[in-house]
Design a protein around this nucleic acid. Structure first.
Lengths: 163, 163
DNA sequence: ACGAACTGCATAGACAAGCTATGTAAATCG
DNA sequence: CGATTTACATAGCTTGTCTATGCAGTTCGT
């Protein structure tokens, strides 16, 4: 049953953008539920933030702890402890920053790349069946939404004061 | 700078659906980051699951604890403790199910409705500025994505065995 | 060039929220 | 009417987060 009518439909009802407040509420609700579901994938007990950090390091190269903390919207000590755990797993390696003796650069290791790939495969397997039922337009909407959600998260001001 | 080209563009590059595995990875990444960001909204110390439960009760009426647990993909004891906390806040009320002496029906209270509205207003305020910069098409994509993410979460099988 | 102020990470301690395993009381079934 | 099943509660543990604070390395002003 094709439930994707052409966007040129005379009726802008459900397919058009809802009012912003309701849209925000629905986004929070659906994103949180989806995140919870995804978090229950195998993953060896690690929560999603570990995979996000590994993905960032894989995509953008080595980074410093404070930088990762800001990117992931967690406090610096939280990231410190996560970085240590990941180092303990052998998934990242920390080297002193040659340009700054205080800092350490965390980079993903081969084992980390492998672990990330396994997690992604498990996640893909988990959702593949449902995803395959969606139309191309729906999958495109999801892809676009992924970009937009990232921008919403990154662009919105963190209400907490610097101190 | 309009970054939404017509879908009929000759180049299906970024606007079309990415391959499913990569799409899944990006969805998890962006949804988790967005959820984290949203979770840091005022909210009086409650994490997003509390608001999801209140939203469900507000939308669908009273429900039993096990039902809420299944909907939110948490274990039954986790929901029991959440329900107790919410009851302590005065946001939900529990009444014995007249049809089943073991069960209790949790329903949202007026105070709960008010608290939910406040949270939603805070969330909307947090993201309103960025959301306003998006095109209508992008907002529509987000609205559609919210539905699809919910379906992805609800339809995918929980890999954990019943016991 | 040297002490003050700043910066980046680490540590300590508290707490929230999840899970598994198990218990208790009500309902249902043979 | 006893055995099983069902629905919620309790116990104990683990993880992940936070704030507050400490320490070593860097930067800057005079």
């Amino acid at each position: 049953m094709p439930e994707n009518t052409a966007p040129e439909s005379a009726e802008p009802a459900a397919a058009s953008a809802p009012e912003p407040d309701r849209l925000t509420a629905e986004l929070i609700r659906s994103a949180a539920l989806f995140t919870r579901t995804a978090g229950r994938i195998a993953g060896g007990g690690y929560s999603s933030i570990a995979w996000r950090v590994l993905a960032d390091l894989d995509r953008d190269g080595a980074a410093r702890a404070a930088e990762l903390a800001a990117l992931q919207r967690v406090a610096q000590p939280s990231m410190t402890s996560l970085v240590h755990r990941l180092e303990g797993e052998g998934w990242i390696a920390r080297n002193p920053d040659p340009a700054d003796g205080r800092a350490a650069l965390a980079g993903i290791t081969l084992a980390g790349i492998r672990a990330l790939a396994e997690f992604r495969a498990a996640a893909a397997a988990r959702f593949a069946a449902t995803l395959a039922e969606f139309s191309d337009a729906d999958r495109a909407a999801l892809g676009r939404a992924a970009e937009l959600l990232t921008r919403l998260a990154r662009d919105s001001e963190d209400p907490r004061p610097p101190r």
